[in-house]
Design a protein around this nucleic acid. Structure first.
Lengths: 154, 154
DNA sequence: TTATTTGCAAACCTTTTGCAAGTGA
DNA sequence: TCACTTGCAAAAGGTTTGCAAATAA
């Protein structure tokens, strides 16, 4: 799906729910899809603040992010820090995360076999699976190397 | 491991770190291990408040819970609600969770094959795995049944 | 026109912290 | 004794909300 397609989808989504396409919503939406990085509400707010042009309030950022989450335009990720991170779904098939405990790097991965086993476990218990998230915490390649080096010095 | 063993371990843990075995710590520890349910800091605080005997402050609850987490006596679980849930490790081998979106029920499950695949994915990327958590969200058997019934009425 | 949205600031909620008084070892 | 702990209340930090003014449809 392309960027213009998702924009149209956002417009339809608003129309369906009889919500207005306002300037703050447009700006927040654009900003959320302008990067493939994970971002927090506060980061998005700061980014919009720094940009020239019309300012958007913190409240609108939070409200619109919640809206985008409901509409399935964004997904939320709790990385263990205090704030929630968001990522847009455009060009991001479903995936899980590896979180580096050292540098905070977020890697994405996907394994169909794991998904299948999840479904199998749910079936076994009559649990109706809606969504899942798998977070692997540890050290990314670079940080693992750094740690190995400093450990040998100690 | 039995209850008395874990108590002794807690005492050793404190001694190692030159921490004192105080009354608030003892009470919080006992309370945390008195149930096999998941509980929040606030719930534990409320439970201690209701009990006859010496009261413990909210601050001590939070401080001691953090300590127990560090010592590996408790594990934390973010169920998606606003507060963190804790569970003790006694008699709870490592497991993952199914969270009911309707009634909030928490089911535990474990599948060695999933664990192995996680490790495989990490190896592939040079990611050094420390811990993980897998949360499956959906509807527990009872709630799924309820939902199916009300859907057919609609 | 008018129901929806916005921005602001205050409120919320969970958790953390500074500090003076209390207490295990 | 005295370093570690506690309780209190205030602060923090992210997020939510009430309300009057602004705005899309």
């Amino acid at each position: 799906m392309r960027h213009t397609d998702i924009q149209k989808r956002f417009e339809s989504f608003l129309k369906e729910r009889e919500l207005k396409l306002t300037n703050p919503r447009r700006l927040i939406f654009e900003r959320a899809f302008a990067t493939h990085e994970h971002f927090s509400a506060e980061e998005l707010y700061a980014a919009l603040k720094d940009e020239p042009g019309e300012k958007v309030s913190r409240a609108s950022v939070y409200r619109t992010l919640a809206l985008l989450l409901e509409g399935g335009f964004l997904e939320a990720l709790d990385t263990g820090g205090s704030e929630l991170k968001y990522e847009h779904v455009l060009g991001h098939e479903h995936h899980d995360h590896m979180l580096c405990l050292d540098c905070g790097r977020i890697e994405e991965f996907h394994d169909e076999r794991i998904e299948a086993l999840q479904e199998e476990n749910c079936k076994k218990r009559g649990f109706e699976l809606v969504s899942h998230d798998l977070r692997l915490r540890g050290y990314c390649k670079a940080c693992a190397k750094k740690r190995a080096k400093s450990a040998s010095v100690d």
